[in-house]
Amino acid sequence: MNQPASAYFIEERHDPNETHTLSVLVQNEPGVLARVIGLFSGRGYNIESLTVSETEAQKHLSRITIVTTGTPMVIEQIKHQLDRMIPVYRVVDMTLTKRSIERELAMVKVRGQGEHRVEALRLADAFRARVIDATTESFVFEITGNTDKINQFIDLMRPLGLVEVSRTGVAAIGRGPEGM
């Protein structure tokens, strides 16, 4: 293939993409989330999901869980780029440790009557979703699980009158006695 007339070498990359979950321990200070997000947008990395909250108030530590996709080389770059930011303490690739638990919470609003309503309740029960709000024509279910499970539940609710969904994004933690 002819290169276009460019000062840059334009290369097509064919490495397969992988999905990784990264846990990032940061100093909770103004702008820290903007730094992390800016890194992803500025360098063209993907964010599939992002969850952040202060986890140790006394030490001003927040934990950011990022689900990202990229080639193995890009994933390695992302980790190094995150790690060199001044307020970042540690970056752990939860996918590489193979010993992590991932959970996401979703609230799913379904509107319907008659057979649809009964079916929604039955499925919710099978998925261990809880009813946290109900009217005569609607439910709000709360469901916790990994991303696939929640996707599956939402797909099943769609024909039964799905109205809207609010999801937290993935939170992850390692198994066993050690912290990150």
Binding site: M73, E76, Q77, H80, Q81, D83, R84
Partner: peptide
């Protein structure tokens, strides 16, 4: 000195 320089362009 910067780990992000390693394996960025060339393995």
């Amino acid at each position: 000195i910067d780990p992000s320089s390693i394996n960025k362009n060339i393995r």
